[in-house]
Amino acid sequence: MKITHHPTDETLAAFVNATLCEGNTLVVATHLAHCPACRKAVREMSEVGGGLLDKGETTPISDGAREKCLAKLDAVPPEPTEAGTPMPEAERPMSLVSLYEDGKWQWVGPGVYRKFLDVPSLEGTRVFMLKAAPGTRLPDHRHVGTEWTCVLKGAFIHDHGRFGAGDFDEADDSVAHNPYVEEGEECICLVALNGEVEMTGWLGRLIQPLLRL
């Protein structure tokens, strides 16, 4: 699997610092499940955290806390590592997605279905899977807010290139695009949407009330 579109370094840093909302965290994690290069970047960025921890200041721990902690050790012995076989790579992305309850596939337009995931959000992020038949042309749209996507299966193409399985697409309000699904295979994506999507084509305007994207 050849991955060509990755999260930016500042997005990976935000992942390392857990400052992304839960929906965006899930989409980045799903990319990481596909991408050893970005997992390596994440580990390297964790070293920055480790370095700052080492070089950072300290706040004294109160008297007796250490002894209290030591007294607990017998009750929680070190766990032996499980000798289980690692999860096959192909199953990893869906193992993340299926942490969350999902709804039913809903028809949203010709050849296009959507299924919401129950991802809690304080910021109003909506997380869903989008499934589109080969060759489907999605309505022209412009973003108000951000739309982060990780492709799970198949491929779509828009102004910024071809996005196949594992590819990550970070669209914000500077992007207007008219994606279409590559011929041959249906395309399934995981999407976290912050804010609204504004349809720009006449067809899009017509079906926007139906889509409620």
């Binding site: 390297e44 070293e47 480790g50 050790l73 929680v76 070190p78 032996p80």
Partner: peptide, 17 residues
């Protein structure tokens, strides 16, 4: 303490962990 056996320096330093 509990997860000590899961630590691997192949993944990075103790401080990062």
């Amino acid at each position: 303490w509990r997860k000590a056996s899961y630590f691997s320096s192949q993944r990075g330093s103790a401080s990062a962990w």
